[in-house]
Amino acid sequence: MMAIHGVILAALIFCAFLCLYRIGKGPSAPDRAVGIDILGTLIVAFTALTGLKTGHDWYLTVALAWALVSFVAAIALAKHLEGRAFDE
């Protein structure tokens, strides 16, 4: 497991750079929002793997919180793109 751990984390970082490419290039605002949403999900996976590697269970708590915050961020961005207020 420990032998392939570096490869797996490197693959996830490669994915994160692909997301960053999409966030940087656009071309429209929703494209960037999609990139941010996917990057949040990738960070959940990355944090969980780090927790498995180090053996600390609070990494999973961070992943849990990150998943929920990422969801709220996606909904807020979608409402903003749609031109609505957050309480509408």
Binding site: S28, A29, P30, A33, V34, D37, T41, V44, A48, L60, A63, L64, A67, L68, S70, F71, A74, I75, L77, A78, K79, H80, L81, E82, G83
Partner: peptide, 25 residues
Amino acid sequence: CTGFVLLTSPVGAHALARGAYRSGV
């Protein structure tokens, strides 16, 4: 966390697609 991701990710994506369409992309 699996349950949360499985529930929230499609909902967020659906809202984003709707927002993208209605913002005129």
